[in-house]
Simulated assay, not measured.
Amino acid sequence: MITQAPIQMVDLKTQYLRLKTDIDEAMQQVLLNGDFINGSFVRQFQQDLAAFLDVERVVTCANGTDALQLAMMALDLKPGDEVIVPAFTYVATAEVIALLGLTPVWADVDPDTFNLTAENVQAVLTPRTKAIVPVHLFGQCADMEPLLHLASANGLAIIEDTAQAIGSIYRFADGTERMAGTIGDIGCTSFFPSKNLGCYGDGGALMTNDTGLGERLRIVANHGQRQKYIHERVGVNSRLDTLQAAVLSVKLPHLPDFSRRRQEAAARYDEWLGNVPGLRIPVRAAASTHVFHQYTLKVEGDQRDALKSHLQQAGIPAMVYYPMAMHQQPAYRRDEYPAGSFPVSEALCRQVLSLPMHTEMDEAEQEYIAAKVIEFFNAE
C-alpha cells in the first residue's frame, strides 16, 4: 500500500533527518569558526575524497558545470578544437564547450547502457578532435578501456563526466578496478543536492592522477593564480564554500551505504518489472558497477508519455531524462546534423522514463509504484 506521505523522486529530507546530528554539528562548527571561504572543511574534504577514490588530486569547485569548464581550460583547449560528447546527455556537457569557443561533436550512444562507445567515437573523429567526454550516465561507467586505447592512439584527452556515477567501479580486462572519475585525464563531478553524494546547495570537484594537471586545475579555479595577485593563467572564480564542504564531509563516509541502498531498491524494481512486456529494465554493464543515480526504464512503442501520465494520476512522479537529443536542441542545432543523424539517442528521447530512486526508498512505496506500472501495461 502507498504511504500517506507523497511519493518523491528524491527524498532529501528523510536522509537529512537520519544524518541530522552529524550534519548540524559540522555546519555549526563552520558558523562558529567563521571560515566560510576555503575553510578547513574544504581542505579536509578534498583529502578525504581523494583517499576514497584512490586518486592523486581532488580540486573542489562551485558546481559540476564549472568542473567541466575548468577541465577544458586546464587542458589548454583552443577555439575551434573539437570535443566529442554524447548526443544523449544533459546540456552542461556541451554548454561549456560552446562557451569556450570549442566545437561540440556529437556521437551516438549504446542502446543498452546509454553511454559512449569507442566505435561511435571513432566514427566522428577528425584531425581537429582534441578531447572526448564520456558521460557515465544514470550511475554506471562508459566502457572506458577501449576509449582509453582510442584516445592514446590519437593523442586525445579524456574528461570523465561522473556527476551521476560517483562511487561506481570500473573493471579492466586484467581485473584492475578504478573508481569512476579516476580513469581518464580528468574526472568531473557535481554535488547538486539530488546527486548520489550531494550537498545542500551547489558544489563540484575535479579528480586527476596527473600532479601537474592537478596544480593547473587549482590555479585556474582560483583566478589563474598560484600566488595571491600574481595571475599566471586566465582563470575563473569557482569555489566550494565551507558550509557545503562540511555537509559533504559528513556524507562521504556514507557513500558506500548510499550506493548499497540504491542498488537494493533497483533490485526490487527489477524483480517486479523485469518481465513486463513492452518494458525494459536498466541493463547492467559487464565492466561497471551501477550506483543508480536514476532507475531508467525503456518503454517500447509510443507508450512512454501515456505511462508517465498514468503514474502522475496515481501520485507517482516520473521524469524523462532527456526529452531531446543534443543535436536537436535549438541552441546547438546545425545543418550537418538533421533528424536521424543519431538514431539511438533520438529513440531514447522517446523511450526513457525514470522512476523514483533515492537512498530512503520504502519497499511498500516501491511495490505500489511497480503495481501501477504493471496496471498500465495490463490495461493495454
Rank of each mutant, 00 (worst) to 15 (best):
Q122T: 14
P282K: 10
N63F: 03
T211Q: 07
M207C: 13
N196G: 12
Q4W: 02
T182F: 05
S309M: 09
G184E: 08
F377P: 09
P317W: 08
R260V: 00
T189G: 14
G155N: 15
L102G: 09
F172T: 11
D108Q: 03
A221F: 06
A180M: 13
H327T: 03
T359R: 02
P330G: 05
A267C: 02
V247Q: 06
G155Q: 11
G64S: 09
S152A: 15
A306P: 00
G235D: 08
D112E: 14
I2Q: 12
V234D: 12
Q313A: 13
E160Y: 02
F45A: 01
I37E: 10
R171E: 12
T296I: 09
S152C: 03
L116M: 08
Y200A: 14
E95Q: 13
L156P: 11
A74T: 12
C61K: 06
L148M: 13
Q15A: 12
V220G: 04
L273A: 12
Y321F: 15
S341N: 07
T211V: 05
F138S: 11
T129R: 11
Q4P: 08
I219C: 11
D66R: 08
L137Q: 09
L197H: 03
W272E: 13
R268N: 03
I84N: 08
R128W: 05
A285Q: 00
V234R: 09
A118P: 10
M326S: 13
E145V: 08
A151P: 04
A173Y: 05
N38H: 12
L77C: 12
D257Q: 07
C349A: 04
L243G: 04
L31K: 05
A94Y: 11
D161E: 15
F88T: 04
Q4H: 05
G187A: 07
D210R: 07
R128Y: 10
T182W: 07
H223K: 14
R171A: 10
D302Q: 15
S249D: 13
D54S: 15
I37K: 08
R284N: 14
A26V: 02
T126S: 15
L273P: 01
E119A: 15
I158D: 01
D112L: 15
M9W: 01
F36C: 02
L49A: 12
G203L: 06
N209K: 07
S259A: 14
I158M: 01
Y170M: 09
M326C: 05
K195R: 15
Q8R: 14
H254V: 00
A107I: 06
I316V: 10
I7F: 04
Q4N: 11
L102R: 11
A246C: 07
I97P: 03
T242C: 13
R18V: 00
R304P: 02
C349T: 06
G201T: 02
P127W: 00
G203E: 00
Q28C: 05
T113F: 08
E380V: 07
I84F: 07
I132D: 05
I183T: 13
N196S: 14
P277M: 05
G181Q: 05
F342M: 10
P6C: 04
G274P: 14
Q244T: 03
N115W: 01
R18N: 05
R260F: 01
R178N: 10
E367L: 00
G204H: 10
A62G: 09
A285V: 05
